[in-house]
């Protein structure tokens, strides 16, 4: 999968899991400063990644990502 396509898919999954408009998100979007959310939503995101991309990202790795781009890196590593 091309990097750009993966970025779009992860952005879509973040939008679904956190209930935000995908159009407002980019790879630079910060989880802590711009998305916020709860640990349960992060669990939901990790589950969605597993469901849709067939990739298991550890929760602590996902929670350690500062931006969506960092999360895309993690997903790419596990593919």
């Amino acid at each position: 999968m091309e990097r750009k396509e993966l970025e779009s898919q992860v952005i879509a999954l973040v939008a679904t899991s956190y209930g935000v408009d995908a159009g407002t998100l980019t790879v630079e979007t910060s989880f802590a400063d711009e998305i916020g959310g709860t640990s349960v939503q992060m669990v939901g995101l990790v589950s969605e990644i597993e469901n849709e991309l067939d990739v298991m990202v550890q929760l602590q790795d996902a929670a350690g990502c500062a931006t969506i781009g960092d999360l895309v890196d993690k997903v790419e590593e596990e593919m």
């Binding site: 669990v43 939901g44 589950s47 969605e48 597993e50 469901n51 067939d54 298991m56």
Partner: peptide, 10 residues
């Protein structure tokens, strides 16, 4: 439920 069939099997 959060997980689908394939991830659940794993």
């Amino acid at each position: 439920t959060m997980l689908k069939q394939k991830p659940l099997a794993r």
